[in-house]
């Protein structure tokens, strides 16, 4: 698969997970400063990692949510809460991830995640 095909494969997964509305908005805001970065994450994160068949997308969402809580990346976490719902996780599944994170990352990290997840649910 060449770079262009990898990008296209990534874009397809990115659209499926984050939704057309989000990806269209992101692409329309692309400019000379952000283009290479956008292409790189689409090609690499989405095209090389998320397309791998070993885990289904629900499983990848669980992993990603847990890591983003651990890294204290609130904005990315909210983005992936939306993605997790698109991938078929329920609100209860997301709650379970946050409860598990409380043990390893501490209660304040999980507390932020609970609030951030609720913001995403409320926006629906």
């Amino acid at each position: 698969m060449d770079e262009k095909q990898r990008y296209e494969a990534g874009l397809k997964v990115r659209r499926a997970v984050l939704g057309d509305a989000h990806v269209d908005r992101s692409l329309s805001r692309q400019n000379d400063f952000t283009r290479e970065f956008q292409e790189m994450i689409t090609r690499h994160a989405w095209g090389e990692i998320w397309t791998r068949p070993a885990f289904d997308r629900k499983t990848r969402s669980v992993m990603t949510l847990a890591m983003l809580i651990a890294l204290n990346r609130g904005d990315e976490f909210k983005l992936h809460v939306r993605g997790a719902l698109n991938n078929g996780l329920t609100q209860d599944d997301i709650k379970e991830v946050i409860l598990a994170a409380a043990i390893y990352c501490g209660v304040p990290a999980a507390n932020s995640a609970i609030h951030q997840a609720q913001e995403v649910f409320a926006a629906d």
């Binding site: 043990i103 390893y104 990352c105 501490g106 209660v107 304040p108 990290a109």
Partner: peptide, 9 residues
Amino acid sequence: MAVYAGFPA
């Protein structure tokens, strides 16, 4: 600190 920073810490 287990409560605030997690059990591994």
